[in-house]
Computed example of a mutant assay.
Amino acid sequence: MHQQPTLQRDPIKLRGSFSLEVILTLFAFKCMSPSAIYLSRGNHESKSMNKIYGFEGEVRSKLSETFVELFAEVFCCLPLAHVINEKIFVVHGGLFSVDGVKLSDIRAIDRFCEPPEEGLMCELLWSDPQPYPGRGPSKRGVGLSFGVDVTKRFLQENNLDLVVRSHEVKDEGYEIEHDGKLITVFSAPNYCDQMGNKGAFIRFEAPDLKPNIVTFSAVPHPDVKPMAYANNFLRMFS
């Protein structure tokens, strides 16, 4: 876990036909100004998801097999969460199947591996909020759904004010839930060239760190179909 500056954007999302260009741009920004950008791991930053949804094929087509292995290695180095000014918890997926998880527990996770199918690391990458209290099964079959009471309890126990996460397409690019204690922000407009959604990012400005949400629409891109490098089965549905 790292302290993060006042600008937050959606964690890396590798699902599209220009994923390589996107991630190399982000890495270039990180090299150019390390303290100005912090990258988070998402559920797609794993070998299995990269194979299914096309990032592996894209890298192999545009670069080489060597870079497939290098990306797999660097994904295992990405942080699972960040905290902004000790008050805002930033994560790709969501919260946990058990109460009492502290920031120290998250720091203690050995993230230098492929994500497991259960446990804290899995839930950070895969979980989603639900509109009713308590916990429930995930619509994805991995992770869980968690309610407003789970969010508020986690924030209170860790002296935090807000959860910011992504992992779900939203029509307006964002959604505020759980009595204002959780914001979903999704920065890919017209997701997979099919959803027609806006994209969004959040700017937190000192001293009060009030979220300023900025939305934007998709722009034209080169004529390459979405998920052009995915395996044959998925291309049938793209």
Rank of each mutant, 00 (worst) to 15 (best):
R60H: 11
I84F: 03
H82V: 08
H92K: 13
F96A: 02
A81Y: 09
V83H: 01
K62W: 01
F89P: 06
A81M: 06
E86F: 04
L78P: 04
L95D: 02
K62F: 01
F71K: 03
V59W: 12
V74W: 11
V91S: 02
E58V: 10
K87P: 09
R60P: 00
P79I: 03
P79W: 03
F89Y: 11
F71V: 07
T66Q: 08
V83P: 00
K62L: 04
V90T: 14
N85V: 06
V83S: 03
V59I: 15
L63H: 03
V83I: 12
V91Y: 02
I88G: 05
I84E: 06
G57V: 13
L70G: 04
E65A: 08
E56H: 08
V59K: 14
A81K: 02
E73F: 06
L95N: 05
T66K: 11
E86I: 02
E86K: 09
R60K: 13
G57N: 10
L63G: 01
E69Y: 15
T66C: 06
F96I: 05
E56P: 00
S61Q: 14
C76T: 15
T66D: 07
F71M: 09
E86M: 04
G57Q: 14
N85F: 08
C77W: 15
F67S: 10
S64C: 15
N85Q: 10
F71P: 07
L63P: 00
H82Y: 13
F67W: 15
A81L: 03
V90E: 10
G94R: 04
V59N: 09
G57K: 11
G57C: 14
G93C: 06
V74Y: 13
E58C: 10
L78S: 08
C76P: 06
G57I: 13
V68R: 05
F67R: 11
K62T: 00
V83W: 01
F67N: 08
L63N: 00
L78Y: 12
V74T: 14
E86D: 12
S61E: 13
E58P: 09
I84R: 02
H82W: 06
C77S: 14
A81V: 05
C76A: 15
S64F: 07
E58I: 09
G94L: 03
E69G: 12
G94D: 03
K87T: 14
E86V: 03
E69L: 15
V91G: 01
E58Q: 12
V59S: 13
V90W: 12
A72K: 08
L80Y: 00
V74I: 14
H82A: 12
A81I: 04
G94S: 04
L63A: 05
L80V: 03
S64T: 13
I84K: 00
E69C: 12
V90K: 13
E73C: 05
V68H: 05
H82M: 10
G93P: 04
P79R: 01
F96S: 03
S64G: 08
V68F: 04
V91D: 01
A81T: 05
H82G: 13
L63W: 05
E69I: 13
F67M: 15
E86H: 08
C77Q: 14
L70P: 02
V74C: 11
H92Q: 11
C76M: 15
L95E: 02
L80S: 01
E58S: 09
F71L: 07
L95F: 05
E69W: 15
L78K: 09
I84D: 02
S61M: 14
E73K: 10
L78D: 05
E65R: 02
E73H: 11
L95W: 03
V91A: 03
E65D: 09
